[in-house]
Nucleic acid binder design. Structure first.
Ligand code: MN
Ligand code: MN
Ligand code: MN
Ligand code: MN
Lengths: 237, 237
DNA sequence: CAATAGATTTCGGTCCACCTAAAATAAGCC
DNA sequence: GGCTTATTTTAGGTGGACCGAAATCTATTG
């Protein structure tokens, strides 16, 4: 039932391959994989061959890498560990949400299945991590909330933040300062003429008065919004 | 201030070298080191050379290995991590004391200093782990309780268990069943004729009626007793 | 004090995950 | 369709941690 225990590297590879298609569909290329893992392309080539031998990925030379069922299964356990650990760090150890990623990146390879199960129980079986990413359950099932990238929404749209990409701590700190968190309600305002920055009306989840924030390209591609009421604008407050 | 981050192996080596002299004074030999680490003697020879180059141990060929100040410092941080993690597993995740060692053995290499500090705070800065082993503080200071190995005590002696070696989970389970835990009060009874087993009177810390237990060689060398009142026998109960 | 048994080190070699530089291939463009 | 460019793979090599077998040293002991 349990494969002979994958190395940390293997776990990171399948996790990155999985994550790449979590919020969009194009499979990942060698180069993208290399970038996200911070290793050379050649290293990826070799490792992908190994992953293929292990039955974790499908791969034809010179094309994109996709997970097999086994690979996806492994990836989901790693993602589960990662996100539960992040949740633990925030809820129990008082970490800020921009501090948890690196810590979880290492810890995810060091915890046993028992540990993960007990941790999940202690945390009350959470389904989302501090950044809104879904936490797979022990069987690998997860609920992906319907959401659209903020950069794709038209002016007037509003909804609540469902997910914030956690790979740039700097951005997370900026968003914190602007009062933007998971479940924060936002309304899309006008594009700033040249900068490409978008004006957004931020209101607290409990219907406080909104305040404006300016979000650049980077932020727009890191924020996912639940398509609350995509049609008409019933501004609350 | 911080050395470039030791590998897991290096951390385990210095930890084992340190632990060997925690409750007695003879320094550890190559072979003993190899046994405790589960590696070949030849591997130890090589690694010891590296540790010496790193300034973590003193070593003259063909003799025992001892820690330098730097090595002792590193060892203490590893031990601190290990024991705090064990405490966490028992107190917060409901592990039994025989389950924690292996988990901590891996986790100790994956946690950051920040993690350790916050964990210690959350646990209330404990000074002993679930097996009674002292937990060094952030500066590496630790209080070694005065204690003697149970195997060295004469009949009639009594005192409370201060420390139980945690390297055999099987033994820990046995002791649990016999009602022996850290702070349990025991009185040394007679040696059984040939077996070498010792009869011990076990009473709960809160002065309940005692019951007898039989402890073999293995157990006698794993239990440390605080020299409570080494002189006369004021049997309580 | 020389022989020998036991502990320790050295030697050649493996496996893993990485690297740089060079070769192969796919894709876009005239 | 051929050329060029960008991506991907292969080739050759490194460092870390391990191994078994062989060589070497220490300590005992006869
Ligand atoms: Mn990782
Ligand atoms: Mn996250
Ligand atoms: Mn360890
Ligand atoms: Mn312990």
């Amino acid at each position: 039932m349990k494969s002979p225990a994958a190395s940390s590297s293997i776990e990171d590879y399948v996790k990155v391959i999985y994550s790449f298609t979590e919020w969009q569909d194009k499979p990942i290329s060698s180069t993208q994989l290399a970038q996200r893992l911070g290793v050379a392309n050649s290293s990826v080539s070799e490792m992908v061959r190994k992953l293929k031998d292990l039955g974790l990925v499908d791969h034809k030379p010179y094309s994109a890498v996709t997970l097999t069922e086994a690979g996806r299964g492994l990836a989901l356990t790693v993602v589960r560990r990662h996100r539960l650990i992040e949740t633990f760090l925030v809820e129990e150890l008082g970490y800020a949400w921009d501090e948890v990623h690196d810590e979880a990146e290492l810890l995810e390879h060091a915890v046993s299945e028992t540990f993960v199960d007990r941790l999940a129980a202690k945390l009350g079986h959470p389904t989302r991590d501090p950044h809104g990413d879904p936490i797979p359950d022990a069987d690998g099932a997860l609920e992906l909330p319907a959401a659209r990238l903020l950069s794709e929404l038209d002016e007037g749209h509003h909804g609540s933040i469902t997910r914030i990409s956690d790979d740039d701590p700097e951005l997370l700190r900026y968003l914190s300062r602007e009062g933007i968190d998971v479940d924060t309600h936002v309304e899309v305002g006008p594009r700033k003429p040249f900068s490409g920055a978008l004006q957004v009306l931020v209101s607290t989840a409990d219907g406080g008065a909104g305040h404006p924030a300016e979000l650049g390209e980077q932020a727009l591609h890191a924020l996912w919004v639940a398509d609350d009421t995509p049609h008409e604008g019933c501004t609350l407050a």
